[in-house]
């Protein structure tokens, strides 16, 4: 499990995170929900050591060092994060070079599924294609957790469907997934947990199925409660 405790972060005199505490379990798809600038991306980056926290702690089970972290947790930012001049196959080569758990067969499978041409250059990809490529890079390795930052934002409908398929496939099955989004509608049906962030704090931490069964509310309804008040 990934456990975040009392995370604080200040960014340019604004308190982005003001004591955030939650955890994401393996085998579950957890979603961080919040308005723009609520600190969702910041939390993911903080887990990955790509930005420091002012205060607080982050623990990932079984991970003692950054080296183990990067082998066990993969991060899919909202862009391809490869040089524009690279071809897609160069990017895959990069991942294979540095990650022990890189699974070449799965990478090929995903490339085929998304219909990506390995000879294309990263700089020439459309937003949707870049997102799909990002998923390839993030999912092909045998990691225990996958963090995704805004996987659906700005993507066309058909690409979204393909990405949604991946979510329900065995590729995700045993892993822990932490997703951020501000468009909850599309993926609500996939989620197990939802964490609503407001004013730098956790406003609600809900088990989606439970809320649906017991209160008959969708996550969207809960969101309206939290953010409209």
């Amino acid at each position: 499990m990934i456990r975040i405790e009392n995370a604080h972060k200040r960014y340019r005199w604004r308190k982005v995170l003001d004591g955030v505490t939650f955890s994401a379990e393996k085998g579950q798809i957890t979603c961080l929900v919040g308005m723009n600038g609520a600190g969702k991306s910041t939390l993911l980056k903080a887990i990955m050591g790509l930005t420091p926290l002012s205060k607080g702690s982050i623990r990932v089970d079984g991970v003692g060092s950054k080296r183990e972290l990067y082998e066990k947790v993969s991060f899919i930012p909202d862009h391809a994060a490869m040089p524009g001049g690279y071809r897609l196959e160069d990017g895959l080569q990069f991942m294979a070079d540095y990650y022990k758990r890189w699974n070449e067969a799965r990478a090929n499978e995903l490339m085929a599924f998304f219909r990506l041409d390995p000879r294309d250059r990263v700089g020439n990809l459309s937003k949707g294609t870049a997102a799909k490529y990002g998923l390839v890079l993030g999912l092909a390795a045998d990691t225990e957790f996958v963090l995704m930052d805004e996987p659906f934002s700005g993507i066309d409908v058909f690409s979204r469907e393909m990405i949604g398929e991946v979510f329900s496939s065995r590729l995700i099955e045993d892993r822990g997934v932490l997703v951020t989004t501000h468009e909850i509608g599309e993926i609500e049906y996939l989620l197990d947990r939802a964490i609503l962030l407001k004013d730098g704090k956790v406003a609600r931490d809900i088990d989606c199925e439970q809320v649906r069964d017991e209160q008959g509310k969708s996550v969207l309804d809960v969101m309206r409660e939290v953010y409209r008040s």
């Binding site: 990955m48 050591g49 790509l50 060092s65 950054k66 080296r67 183990e68 972290l69 990067y70 082998e71 991060f75 930012p77 994060a81 490869m82 040089p83 990069f94 540095y98 990650y99 022990k100």
Partner: peptide
């Protein structure tokens, strides 16, 4: 590219 470079294990 900094994202990738900084996430290289060790």
């Amino acid at each position: 590219f900094a994202f990738r470079l900084l996430m290289v294990p060790g």
